[in-house]
Amino acid sequence: MKRLFSMISLLLCALLLAFPASAAAQYANAAELYADWEQNGYPDDVCSVYSTDGEGSMCILLLEDTPEREAELLALLEDSSRVSFGTGVYSHNEMAAACDEIVREYFGGAVVSCGIGWQSAGGEAKGFGESGFESRVMVSVTVEKAPEYEALFAEKYGDMVVVEAVEGAPVAAAGVGEEYGSVTDRARSSSWWIPAAAFVLFALTGLFLAGRAKASRAAQTTTGHIVAGRTSPSRAQVVRAIRESSRTPDSRVLENIKKKLR
C-alpha cells in the first residue's frame, strides 16, 4: 500500500512538473538561473555570475566561452536580453572544493572565514583576472598570521586562493556568491503553485520512503573500520575512512629489498 501511494505520488509530481512544461523547465531570466545554480549546484564549466548594472543584467563567466555553450544557456531563459558572457580561469566547483578543504583543515584560530567572491579594495568590491570580474577563494586571516597563510595557500593552490588580513574575532565560514550583491529584480513564474504542490507531494512521498534509510547497511572497510552506522556517512567521515584505509606491506618486503642490495 505504501509502495502504491509512493508510486502514485511520484507520478502526480511528474505530471505537475510537466504542465506547463515551458514555465517549470526554463528560467525567467539569468537571475533565476543563477539562483538555481546557487541552490542546486553549478555546471562544471561555470566560473561565476555577476551583475553588470546592479540590477538584472548578468554576466556569466565560463571556462570556455563558445557560441555553442552560450546558445545552450540562453535557450534556458525566457528573457535572455540582459545576459552577457566572458571567460574565467577557475570553475566555481574547483573553488568550492578548495574552499571545503580550507574550512576543514584550517578553519578556526587565525583563519576566520572562507568563501568564494571578490576582494574589498578601498571599500569597494573588486574582482580578479584579466576581466577584473572573476572570483577567487577569499580567505580572511588575522593580521599576525596572514603572511604565513598567504605563503601556505600560494604553495597549495596557486592564485586560486587569496588571503585577506583582518582584525577582530572569527566569524562563521562565508557562503558563495559574494559578488552577487545588489540584484533584487526577479521575474516570478505565474505558475508558482506547481512547484509548491510538487514539493508537498515529494515531502509526503519522502515520509513513506524514510524507512528505507534505516535499512541501509553500515559501510565497512576491508580492515573492519565502520565508516558509518545507519545514517549516511558525512564527507568528513568518508575522508577519515580513506585515510585510515592505508595498507602496510608485509615485513618480508624489507628483507627482500636488503637481499637485493647486498
Binding site: N93, A96, S216, A219, A228, S232, R235, V238
Partner: peptide, 13 residues
C-alpha cells in the same frame, strides 16, 4: 571533490 561525493553516494547505496 567529485570522487568524494561519488564515494559518499556509493557508501549509502
Amino acid at each position: 571533490h567529485r570522487a568524494i561525493a561519488r564515494l559518499r553516494s556509493l557508501l549509502t547505496g
